[in-house]
Simulated assay, not measured.
Amino acid sequence: MTTHIFIDGAAGTTGLEIRERLGDRPELTLISLSDAERKDAGARRRALNDADIVILCLPDEAAREAVSLIDNDRTKVIDASTAHRVAPGWVYGFPEISGRDIVAQSKRVSNPGCYSTGFIALVAPLVRVGLVPPDWPLASNAASGYSGGGKSMIADYEGGDVTSAFSTYALSLSHKHVPEMQTHCGLSVAPVFAPAVVPVHRGMIVDVPLPVSAMPGTPSVDAIKSTLRNVYAGSQIVRLIEDYDAATLTIERCANTDRLDLFVFADAAGTQVRLVAALDNLGKGAAGAAVQNLNILAGLEETAGLRL
């Protein structure tokens, strides 16, 4: 018996990446629609309801519409859009943070945002144990490869229309990932988030500075490392890297993988800390996370099809 999968939005960047990871796995059967059928409302509705698990790779409104077309209580949904990441009734699809059992028992799973994955992986465990107060004014700088902007941004960069080496954005301080970063870290104050795009196809760095000497309780570097080490112990996907001694860390560190590497850097006196996450914006930041959630929902090996 195989699990029937339908990727709604399979022709998009994330959909194509997910399809590559599913490959020819015999335990999965893909439901595919032709170009004409994708424009046929009836055919799409049938595919959504015939699937055991649906993965939505759509804009927010289209994702909400797709969910409304499912009229049975059997089909499970993984939504890769922003639409349901803080919505009631949806489980946040970050198994290492939300809990694998909780994800496994859910019928509605929201796939995390790419930047959010790095930020939440670093911050949520520290808030939970009280090392970072929920009302502390956090900030985060981050940079992504241009593939995070989808087909139009990929075309702009690869067509030579963009020549800048570094472009910061979300200058209105209203980036769509901030609500999930705040909610799933349990923060009472939204973090100041400063994302940027650089001219590499894929890869991501998320950096969270902590002035620990000024923070309540003066959390130690050892306590921070110990907390992250314990949370991700045994994970094949999320790793705390403790033996890193190079002078720089490149954005391509985890490119073309579904890993998430975490680092804790500190000054000699332990008064300042930088929490850093490296991931692939299309890997653990998108398609890799969706396939991980699919595996858990289907009761399969969590890392099947992933690039580790």
Rank of each mutant, 00 (worst) to 15 (best):
Q236P: 01
F265T: 00
A170G: 06
V197G: 04
G150M: 06
V192R: 14
Y244N: 05
I237W: 10
R239C: 02
G186W: 06
Y232L: 03
M181E: 14
V273R: 09
V198N: 03
R239A: 03
R229A: 15
E158Q: 14
A246R: 07
H201E: 13
L138K: 11
D267S: 04
V189G: 07
G160Q: 11
T227L: 01
S174H: 07
V264E: 02
D207S: 14
E158R: 11
D207C: 12
I205Q: 07
S213K: 10
S220E: 03
P133Y: 12
P179E: 07
G203C: 02
V231L: 13
T183S: 14
R202E: 15
L260K: 02
A268D: 15
K176D: 15
S167Q: 11
V192G: 13
I224Y: 01
A143P: 01
V221T: 14
K225T: 10
Y169W: 14
G160H: 11
T183K: 14
A196H: 01
A255L: 02
G186M: 04
L138C: 13
S147H: 13
G217A: 09
E242C: 03
L187H: 09
L275S: 08
L262C: 01
D258M: 13
S140R: 01
P179D: 04
M215Q: 09
Y244A: 02
V197S: 10
C254Q: 13
I237N: 08
S172V: 05
P137Y: 11
